[in-house]
Design a protein around this nucleic acid. Structure first.
Lengths: 121, 121
DNA sequence: TGCTGAATTGATGGAATCATCATATCAGCT
DNA sequence: AGCTGATATGATGATTCCATCAATTCAGCA
């Protein structure tokens, strides 16, 4: 069964969800699937520029964590998000990350903008 | 600088955020800090039951990823979330995870509740 | 059947992460 | 200064993850 198995302790389930998301290429793939609803491996190959087996490995991770599902039609395999809520999670993460980065930006700017006190250590 | 550094490519930043969250004890710690606003290492020790150096290692990871900040008052070190939005992200993840698990539950129940077709393989 | 394109799997080496233990730092007290 | 409690750091082995390459499966077509 998938790693998102409700019989596991809750903190582990939550950590597993985040583990599935914890790689730039997998984020990329999930955002592609968030936008396109469904995509073939070939499409994702060109979109990401990855080598086939490398992409396939990450897709396998996403499948194992239960984040995506795949379906073969003729010789092409199509992927979709396993749950629409995943794109919602990514959206929230994106927004919050934006705020966080803006926060630290303005803090940095604040500090950078302070008048230089000549003797300050 | 923290791993949440806006000069890095965006997918990497996002993946780093999730990497910081990708461990059950760190989730536990962040939820403690979400609820309590501030907590000493000693408090987290008793709350989690971890060994001191083990907890400290995970706190170091959280600091490195820029998810928490610490402050020493007398001989006690207090931790807080670096950004309030982090508790928001955890909240959203919790809700979505609830929906996802409910989804798969009901699917399982659906399948489990189907009449058994005698001749089905 | 045998070939080809599409995708996955398996194997390997290297890097990162985790858990445990020992050691070190730091603040306050005597 | 030396001791103690609180916390952090360093070192180690075990495990997991990542990237690359070779080999395999699968569907469709000649």
């Amino acid at each position: 069964m998938a790693v998102l198995d409700e019989r596991r302790p809750l903190y582990e389930i939550k950590a597993n969800l985040f583990k599935g998301l914890a790689h730039p290429y997998r984020i990329r793939v999930l955002e592609i699937l968030s936008a396109a609803d469904e995509a073939s491996v070939a499409e994702m190959l060109t979109a990401t520029g990855l080598e086939a087996s490398h992409l396939s490995q990450h897709l396998a991770v996403l499948r194992r964590y239960g984040l995506v599902v795949s379906e073969r039609r003729a010789s092409v395999v199509y992927y979709r998000l396993a749950h629409p809520q995943i794109s919602e999670l990514l959206r929230v993460a994106r927004v919050l990350l934006g705020e966080i980065l803006a926060d630290t930006d303005s803090q940095r700017d604040l500090v950078a903008g302070l008048p230089t006190i000549p003797d300050a250590r």
